[in-house]
Amino acid sequence: MYIPKHFSVNDRQELLRFVQKNAFGQLISRADNRPEASHLPFLLSENSEVLVGHLARQNPQLDSLDGEQVLVIFNGPHAYISPRWYTSPGVPTWNYQAVHIYGIARTFTDEQRLMSLVNKLSEKYEANADKPWQPEYSPKLLRAIVGVDIEITEIQGKYKLSQNRPAQDRQQVVDALHAEGETAMAEAIQQWNP
């Protein structure tokens, strides 16, 4: 990913926090000499060294995934930024937050590990429900999925949040984004440019 210096984020803890908050990613690998991608939720291991997820057993991406270097992309809020919101001259652009994780993929089919993964994913995403779903399913359903561990070898972060603009322009961008209902992006700009 091309990352100009003023948009670069190198704080590993910040990038891992971002991944936990925006955990639905795109797993990208090569299969039959072409890129393949799957969209799935991930969890970080307890030591934050491994991404864990699962794919449908029928997913052709599994055919060449084990042992391969992969890329997982996580996206946060994004929004169009109009130069009419600036006091100083500018051009149209797009603000966004993205984290790229590179790593080595290892697949697993151990039923206990798969059950633990499904239960942890359910626990995470059911946490705010009035009556959270309690994992109750036939273990044979686990045979329809294959787990994947991705040992993290590199993390890149890019937060393009108008850092290259004067403070007055940034505030006008925030105000315009709020007016257009793009509150997540407005809040990200405020948080990253206090």
Rank of each mutant, 00 (worst) to 15 (best):
V146N: 04
T183I: 13
A23V: 00
R30F: 09
I104S: 12
Q61G: 13
A127V: 05
Y159M: 14
A129L: 13
Y86N: 11
Q97I: 00
V146S: 05
A186Y: 01
R113M: 07
I152D: 07
A167P: 00
M1P: 05
V52S: 06
W85A: 11
V91K: 06
T93Q: 08
F24L: 13
A184S: 12
S38Q: 10
L40F: 00
E49R: 13
K120P: 00
S138P: 01
E151Q: 15
L71E: 09
G90E: 08
I101G: 02
A23Q: 04
R17G: 10
E182D: 11
E36T: 07
S116Q: 13
D149F: 04
V148E: 07
L177T: 03
E49F: 01
R170P: 00
H78N: 15
D11T: 04
R57P: 02
T153W: 03
Q168R: 08
V148G: 06
G103R: 03
G181K: 05
G147C: 09
A167L: 09
K160P: 02
P35A: 12
G181H: 04
P4S: 14
Q156K: 13
A167H: 01
E187A: 07
A144P: 00
A56R: 07
L141R: 09
A129D: 12
E36W: 08
K21G: 09
E126L: 08
P194W: 03
I101Y: 01
A23C: 08
G67Q: 08
Y80A: 13
Y159N: 11
A179F: 02
E123G: 05
Q61P: 04
V91G: 05
Q171A: 12
Q168Y: 00
Y125P: 01
H54F: 04
D130Y: 06
R113V: 06
S116F: 00
T87A: 14
S122N: 14
G25F: 02
Q191Y: 02
K140H: 11
V118M: 09
W133V: 12
N164E: 15
E68P: 00
T87I: 11
N119A: 13
I155V: 15
P132L: 09
N33F: 07
I189G: 03
K124E: 11
G53M: 06
I152L: 06
Y2S: 07
A79K: 04
R165N: 13
T87Y: 03
Q191F: 05
Q171G: 02
G90K: 02
Q58T: 15
L44I: 02
V70S: 07
A167D: 06
Q134W: 01
H100L: 10
P89C: 12
N22I: 05
K124L: 14
W94G: 10
A188Q: 07
E187R: 01
Q61W: 04
R84I: 11
S38K: 06
S138R: 12
Y96I: 10
